[in-house]
């Protein structure tokens, strides 16, 4: 298995970029779609959306192992920062990653990156486990089988997500800390109201466009 070469502890996660599976996936993508010009250090960063699509479409266990090795340790850390103890977090990680496998068909790469989508699953699991509440979700807007998302939209969204990650990383420590705490569920409502935001306008517009296309596709049915 591709993933078998990966150490379980991905504390220094960058070596994952050399995993054969991710190179292979990126290579395929480049053949199909316009290359994304990044020119930054993580040019070789794995395209996790493509890995997730292989899980979605091919039920590819090797792809799942690669995704697990990158995200499961982060999901565990996220849950622990959110107030779970180690044993609880460990159990939730397994649930979260199994849900990723089970619900992969709901992943829409024009509206979310793999990290974003996995975050929403982990967050919902946290609400369920720590607060014993269910979380009402908006009505789903599904792609019909005849309306596969455009490569361009997918790459555009992934690109915006990458920029957002970079913007977050380059914030002053104090502000970044505030945003992280908000997502770890560690701020009071008053503090959240004071958390100044990142510029989310571009990614918002892109998602808005993807939603517009969805509506058109639904109307045509």
């Amino acid at each position: 298995m591709f993933g078998a070469t990966e150490p379980l502890d991905t504390r220094d996660a960058t070596p994952i970029a050399t995993a054969p599976i991710t190179r292979h996936v990126r290579g395929n993508d480049r053949d199909k779609a316009k290359p994304v010009t990044t020119g930054t250090a993580d040019e070789n960063a794995p395209d996790w959306a493509a890995v997730l699509i292989r899980i979605r479409d091919d039920r590819d266990e090797a792809a799942f192992v690669a995704l697990f090795q990158h995200f499961a340790p982060r999901v565990k850390a996220f849950l622990m920062r959110s107030g779970a103890d180690a044993a609880q977090a460990e159990e939730c990680v397994q649930d979260v990653m199994a849900t990723v496998w089970q619900k992969a068909a709901q992943f829409d790469p024009t509206r979310a990156s793999a990290a974003t989508w996995i975050f929403t699953i982990a967050r919902n699991r946290r609400i369920d486990a720590l607060r014993r509440q269910k979380r009402p979700e908006p009505e789903d807007l599904p792609w019909g089988p005849e309306a596969e998302p455009h490569q361009e939209d997918r790459l555009g969204l992934q690109q915006e997500t990458k920029h957002l990650g970079e913007a977050l990383a380059s914030l002053p420590a104090k502000q970044r800390d505030l945003i992280e705490k908000a997502y770890f569920g560690d701020l009071t409502h008053t503090e959240i109201a004071e958390a100044t935001g990142l510029p989310l306008g571009t990614i918002k517009s892109r998602i808005r466009l993807a939603l517009q296309r969805l509506r058109h596709a639904m109307d045509r049915k």
């Binding site: 504390r11 929403t120 770890f184």
Partner: peptide, 23 residues
């Protein structure tokens, strides 16, 4: 909906930037 999903993207960035825990 777009605004919520944009904020979910920020949550994804926070998750991705979290220092990994040992499983």
């Amino acid at each position: 909906r777009a605004a919520v999903e944009a904020h979910d993207a920020l949550g994804g960035a926070v998750l991705d930037g979290t220092e990994a825990a040992k499983l």
